[in-house]
């Protein structure tokens, strides 16, 4: 049977202080994605290989890795694309590695939390007044940004994240915009505080790679650009009409 070589970056802190590449030969199957090959290694070759995965259908956002230096979801990236190999597999760039292909997500999740990606309302309607209704057009305003699955590929693609680890990053801004554009939300003033300050949206230089690698076509680069325009308008308003900047 035809086989293909996977060069997997391994990091075993209790054995070696430095990461190293380990080669694995796996049988080539036309229907296999990279994740299938990793599962083959885990099941048949080397049970110590560590990586994250869950849904294997591009929904959970767990299996993001660098494949030949590109951040991809390994569950929807076919082995065939990289023939004849070898295929180089590494953990997502710019993240701290815990073990092998598993990265530490704490910093990312902290940034997402800072962007307050949840509905913030000034006043809660009593239940007796019924639902918060939304027209299809109002839904369309934010739906694209709601597709984000927190896979972190955009952070690995962003050179600004690489240079400035404090930069809030693409997904957090896209998620903030998901709620800023929601007709039921009143929270964009609170999100501005975080997203318009140092290491916020204006650190982005519109490289655009985040939108290129996004597996869900969220277009975080577009979300950031739209936020820059909104932010600039509000900044000028606060200068011209400071009495309206009390909120």
């Amino acid at each position: 049977m035809e086989s293909v070589t996977l060069q997997v970056l391994r990091y075993l802190p209790e054995e070696k202080s430095e990461p190293f590449y380990q080669d694995y030969d796996v049988p080539f199957q036309k229907k296999w994605v990279i994740l299938d090959a990793l599962n083959y290694i885990k099941d048949h070759v080397d049970g110590t290989l560590t990586y994250r995965w869950s849904c294997r259908m591009g929904v959970c956002g767990s299996c993001g890795m660098m494949v030949n230096d590109q951040p991809v979801l390994t569950c929807e990236t076919f082995l065939e694309t990289y023939l004849p190999g070898p295929i180089r597999i590494a953990p997502l760039s710019y993240f701290a590695v815990i073990r092998d292909l598993v990265v530490n997500t704490d910093d990312f999740l902290g940034k997402v939390k800072r962007a307050k990606p949840w509905l913030i309302t000034d006043e809660l309607k009593p239940v007796t007044e019924g639902e918060y209704r939304q027209t299809p057009d109002e839904l369309k305003e934010y739906k694209q940004y709601s597709m984000c699955i927190n896979c972190m590929l955009c952070y690995s693609a962003c050179p600004i994240v690489g240079l400035d680890p404090e930069f809030v990053g693409p997904a957090a801004v896209a998620l903030a915009q998901r709620y800023n554009y929601d007709s039921r939300d009143d929270g964009h003033g609170q999100r501005n505080k975080i997203l318009m300050d140092d290491d916020g949206i204006y650190s982005c230089t519109l490289v655009g790679e985040c939108s290129v690698v996004c597996p869900k076509a969220v277009d975080p680069a577009g979300a950031i650009q739209r936020y820059k325009v909104t932010g600039a308008v509000e900044w000028w308003k606060s200068v011209v009409m400071p009495w309206k900047s009390d909120k």
Partner: peptide, 17 residues
């Protein structure tokens, strides 16, 4: 409306224009 403490929106407006 809460706005940025820094002047980046100002420079960015001139940059964009």
């Amino acid at each position: 409306m809460s706005v940025s403490k820094n002047n980046d929106p100002f420079w960015w407006t001139l940059f964009g224009a």
